[in-house]
Computed example of a mutant assay.
Amino acid sequence: MANRTGTYVAFDGLGMTDPTKSDFRYYATIKAWCANSNIEFNITNSHEKTYAVRDTSSKATLYSRIQERLRASKNMLVILTSDTRYTGSVLSYEIEQAIDNYKLPLIIAYPGYTSILDVDSHKDVWPKALAERIGKAGTEAIHIAFNKDCILAAVKQFSVNGEHLRR
């Protein structure tokens, strides 16, 4: 198995090609934090460990690349917003694969919050793949605010070889 050092960042692109009109903007924020030498934030991005997938790539190529990235990941950061679709996005496939095949702990981040005190109050933004797996044996997840300090702490602490999470 590949060296599992990466963090796989997942979000719903909402089928948009303009990243400012989708949850891609939160992924771009994470990349900006990593690139800024004045900010203490560094994660190993699983997406940067393999060849890029183009918009013109076939579904088979996309899914193959997702699996390759997940194999190299120690955890998955899932960004959920009120725009996240219940079904019909690649995010559902990514969550299914992460939990069912790669046993990755999920770090679920919610933009617009300073803390997550009641996990169940966020069920309305969970994709079906997550809703069906939360609370089941083998699913490990922590729910946090989309905040650089929270994300960095969670990424450092929760991994396939680290802490065991409870919902």
Results as ranks from 00 to 15, higher is better:
4 R>D: 06
5 T>S: 12
5 T>K: 12
6 G>T: 08
7 T>I: 15
8 Y>A: 02
8 Y>R: 02
9 V>W: 05
10 A>S: 07
16 M>W: 02
23 D>P: 09
25 R>I: 15
26 Y>E: 04
26 Y>A: 09
27 Y>N: 07
28 A>T: 06
29 T>I: 05
30 I>E: 11
32 A>Q: 14
33 W>P: 03
33 W>L: 05
33 W>A: 05
34 C>E: 06
35 A>H: 00
36 N>I: 01
36 N>R: 09
36 N>D: 14
39 I>V: 13
45 N>K: 08
46 S>E: 04
47 H>C: 05
48 E>C: 00
54 R>W: 04
56 T>V: 09
60 A>W: 07
65 R>V: 15
65 R>L: 15
67 Q>F: 03
68 E>K: 08
71 R>L: 12
71 R>A: 11
71 R>I: 04
75 N>H: 05
75 N>W: 02
77 L>P: 06
78 V>K: 05
80 L>W: 00
81 T>F: 06
81 T>M: 02
81 T>H: 00
83 D>S: 08
83 D>F: 09
86 Y>E: 13
88 G>W: 03
90 V>C: 08
91 L>W: 00
93 Y>D: 10
93 Y>K: 03
94 E>W: 04
95 I>N: 05
95 I>P: 00
95 I>M: 01
97 Q>Y: 07
99 I>L: 07
102 Y>P: 03
107 I>A: 09
107 I>P: 03
108 I>V: 15
110 Y>R: 11
111 P>I: 02
112 G>R: 00
113 Y>P: 04
114 T>H: 10
114 T>G: 11
115 S>N: 12
116 I>M: 05
117 L>V: 14
118 D>F: 12
121 S>V: 00
121 S>P: 09
122 H>L: 15
127 P>M: 03
127 P>E: 03
131 A>R: 09
131 A>N: 10
132 E>A: 13
133 R>A: 09
134 I>R: 14
140 E>P: 04
140 E>H: 07
142 I>K: 10
146 F>C: 11
149 D>Q: 10
150 C>D: 15
152 L>Q: 07
153 A>Q: 13
158 F>D: 08
158 F>Y: 15
159 S>V: 01
160 V>G: 03
160 V>H: 02
160 V>F: 06
162 G>M: 01
163 E>T: 12
163 E>R: 07
164 H>Y: 13
167 R>M: 10
